[in-house]
Amino acid sequence: MYPQRTQPDSLPSLDAAAATHSAHVAAHLAQAIAQAGGWLPFDRWMAQALYAPGLGYYTAGAVKLASPRDAQGKALPTGDFVTAPELTPLFAHTLARQAAQILQDTQTRAVLEFGAGSGALAAGVLEELDRLGLDVQYRILEVSADLRQRQQQRLAAYGARVQWLDALPERFEGCVLANEVLDAMPVTLFAWDEQGHLMERGVALGGDGDFAWADRPANDELAQAVAARMPPLPGYASEINLQARAWVRAMGQWLARGAALLVDYGFPQSEYYHPQRTGGTLMCHLRHHAHADPFAAPGLQDITAHVDFTAMADAALAGGLEVLGYTSQARFLMNAGLLQILGRQDAGDAQAYARLAAPVQKLLSEAEMGELFKVLAVGRGVDAPLIGFARGDRRGGL
């Protein structure tokens, strides 16, 4: 997701149906706060806002992902954000090059994607793997019913080669793909008060019935997790993704052989918890507007936080996996052959070629997605050095 940051007062207006749905979600969240005794930890509030059955952002039927251009190249202002696979199929084709190496090295023929969005990444990966002569079984684990339906329509031509799972496999061998999955996992918010006491930030109801921030003393688990990352800093607030850490650690229980490619925006721990990053990274996305108010339009907007890649690497090691590579998205794509894939396109049609090249520039530019997004590879039983990290591997900086 990479929209421009804006202010909440400039957010787009909602139509009647959207406003009604948001009101239903707000009532559900208010009830959850009441049932919890008047205070709900933010990670639980965020989980309900995003994943409450039939109501949450990812479980209701709102359009989330935009296809940025139609067949004539005209911009389409649908959805709330654009991900790399929707920008250009060349992203998926390049990721497939790395997946192919993993599959060949481990002598496996299965790909498992988490949170497959519109199905654009799966379509592009399958197309490139077919071109490389690799006949694979593609599995998708998707929590959103409407996104699963979109994926099934888009990938229908592949028939039984694509299967949807309802739960994690007990054992998997192959390549795992997770593009912008970690950032959508609910985060725990913390802050130090002016006296230096660590507080957990939660949500309560104000006198007018609106959602309001409320802090309580952090429990021992949170205090220990935060202490491992940074010293006390009065007035400093941030977040920690304990659920994402647990998810990566648990991968060691079911990933028997192969590697997972985790693509997301974020930083290593030293940058994530830098003293100057005093407000954390929590961000919301509504109709291509990015802002920092999670209470605006509940159920209609995405809520995300950047990824602490040091924590994800540590979690992989704790789960018995190896850290196989870590670098920027730009360096990974260059290493894996993005420019060579772009070179396959016909440059004779200048306008058509420019339409292909423009999103590639967005993927690679340090001012756009190239530096903010990172790629972390973890796994076991992979012997060959991964091509995506041949140059510019930053594992030493995690």
Rank of each mutant, 00 (worst) to 15 (best):
L141K: 07
E142I: 00
S144Y: 06
A145M: 04
D146G: 04
L147F: 01
Q149I: 08
R150Q: 14
Q152G: 15
Q152P: 09
Q153R: 14
L155R: 11
L155V: 11
A157D: 06
G159K: 04
G159Y: 01
L165I: 07
L168F: 13
P169H: 04
E170F: 01
F172R: 00
C175L: 02
L177K: 01
N179P: 10
N179I: 09
D183L: 03
V187P: 08
A191F: 03
E194R: 14
R201H: 09
V203P: 09
D208W: 09
D208G: 09
G209T: 08
G209N: 09
D210N: 14
W213H: 07
R216T: 13
P217A: 07
A218L: 02
A223E: 10
A223I: 05
V226T: 05
A228H: 05
A228K: 08
M230H: 10
P232R: 11
L233I: 06
P234F: 09
A237E: 15
E239S: 09
A246T: 05
R249H: 13
A250P: 00
L255W: 03
A256G: 10
R257Y: 08
A260L: 08
A260H: 04
L262G: 11
L262E: 11
V263E: 06
G266T: 04
F267Y: 15
S270P: 00
Y273D: 03
Y273T: 02
P275L: 03
